[in-house]
Deep mutational scan, measured.
Amino acid sequence: TRVETATETAWISLVTALHLVLGLSAVLGLL
C-alpha cells in the first residue's frame, strides 16, 4: 500500500541521515 511505501521511504531517509551524521562525526573525530 502507499502508506507502507511512505513509511519505508521515511525509514530509509532516517537511516541514511543517521549514517551520514555518524560518518561525519567519525571523520571530524579523526581530524
Rank of each mutant, 00 (worst) to 15 (best):
T1Y: 04
T1D: 10
T1H: 05
T1M: 03
T1C: 10
T1F: 14
T1I: 03
T1S: 11
T1N: 12
R2F: 03
R2K: 06
R2T: 09
R2D: 05
R2P: 07
R2I: 09
R2M: 14
R2C: 11
R2W: 14
R2G: 11
V3M: 09
V3L: 10
V3E: 06
V3A: 12
V3G: 11
V3I: 07
V3F: 06
V3C: 09
E4M: 03
E4C: 14
E4R: 06
E4G: 08
E4T: 02
E4F: 07
E4Q: 07
E4A: 09
E4L: 07
E4W: 09
T5D: 09
T5I: 03
T5Y: 01
T5N: 03
T5F: 01
T5L: 03
T5W: 03
T5S: 10
T5G: 10
A6N: 00
A6K: 10
A6C: 14
A6W: 14
A6R: 03
A6M: 15
A6H: 05
A6Q: 14
A6F: 02
A6S: 06
A6E: 06
A6G: 08
A6L: 01
T7E: 14
T7V: 12
T7D: 11
T7K: 02
T7M: 14
T7S: 11
T7I: 01
T7G: 08
T7F: 04
T7H: 02
T7L: 10
E8A: 04
E8T: 02
E8F: 03
E8M: 06
E8Y: 04
E8N: 03
E8H: 00
E8L: 00
E8G: 09
E8D: 11
E8S: 03
T9M: 00
T9I: 08
T9P: 14
T9C: 00
T9W: 05
T9Q: 13
A10E: 14
A10C: 03
A10G: 08
A10S: 05
A10W: 14
A10N: 10
A10F: 12
A10P: 07
A10Y: 12
W11Q: 02
W11C: 14
W11P: 13
W11T: 08
W11G: 11
W11S: 13
W11I: 08
W11M: 15
I12E: 03
I12P: 01
I12D: 05
I12K: 13
I12C: 13
I12Y: 11
I12M: 06
I12H: 14
I12Q: 02
I12G: 11
S13W: 00
S13L: 15
S13P: 12
S13N: 05
S13K: 01
S13A: 15
S13Q: 00
S13M: 15
S13H: 01
L14C: 02
L14E: 02
L14V: 03
L14G: 07
L14K: 08
L14R: 08
L14N: 09
V15D: 00
V15N: 01
V15F: 07
V15T: 02
V15R: 10
V15K: 11
V15G: 11
V15L: 13
V15S: 03
V15Q: 02
T16G: 02
T16C: 09
T16R: 11
T16H: 02
T16W: 15
T16S: 12
T16V: 14
T16P: 12
T16Y: 14
T16I: 14
A17L: 08
A17T: 15
A17W: 00
A17P: 00
A17R: 07
A17D: 07
A17K: 03
A17E: 12
A17Y: 05
A17I: 07
L18D: 15
L18W: 15
L18M: 02
L18G: 08
L18R: 02
L18V: 14
L18Q: 01
L18P: 05
L18E: 12
L18I: 07
H19I: 04
H19A: 15
H19R: 10
H19T: 10
H19M: 00
H19W: 04
H19D: 07
H19P: 11
H19L: 13
H19N: 07
H19G: 15
H19K: 00
L20G: 09
L20H: 01
L20R: 12
L20A: 14
L20K: 13
L20N: 03
L20W: 12
L20C: 10
V21Y: 10
V21H: 14
V21Q: 04
V21E: 06
V21S: 15
V21M: 05
V21T: 06
V21N: 09
L22Q: 06
L22I: 06
L22G: 13
L22M: 08
L22N: 04
L22A: 12
L22E: 04
G23R: 10
G23A: 06
G23L: 06
G23C: 15
G23I: 12
G23Q: 00
G23S: 12
G23P: 02
G23E: 04
L24F: 01
L24V: 10
L24R: 08
L24W: 01
L24Q: 08
L24P: 06
S25R: 05
S25C: 13
S25N: 15
S25I: 08
S25E: 00
S25L: 12
S25F: 13
S25T: 11
S25W: 14
S25G: 09
S25P: 03
S25M: 15
S25Y: 11
A26G: 08
A26Y: 13
A26V: 06
A26E: 01
A26I: 09
A26R: 04
A26M: 04
A26Q: 00
A26S: 04
V27Y: 11
V27K: 08
V27C: 03
V27A: 06
V27E: 03
V27L: 13
V27D: 02
V27I: 01
V27H: 10
V27M: 00
V27W: 15
L28F: 06
L28V: 07
L28C: 10
L28M: 15
L28Y: 12
L28W: 05
L28E: 01
L28Q: 13
L28S: 02
L28P: 12
L28N: 03
G29K: 05
G29L: 09
G29E: 07
G29P: 09
G29W: 03
G29F: 14
G29Y: 14
G29H: 00
G29R: 10
L30G: 13
L30R: 09
L30N: 11
L30H: 05
L30Q: 02
L30S: 05
L30D: 04
L30P: 14
L30F: 10
L31P: 05
L31A: 11
L31G: 07
L31D: 01
L31C: 15
L31T: 12
L31H: 02
L31M: 12
L31Q: 04
L31I: 13
L31E: 01
L31N: 01
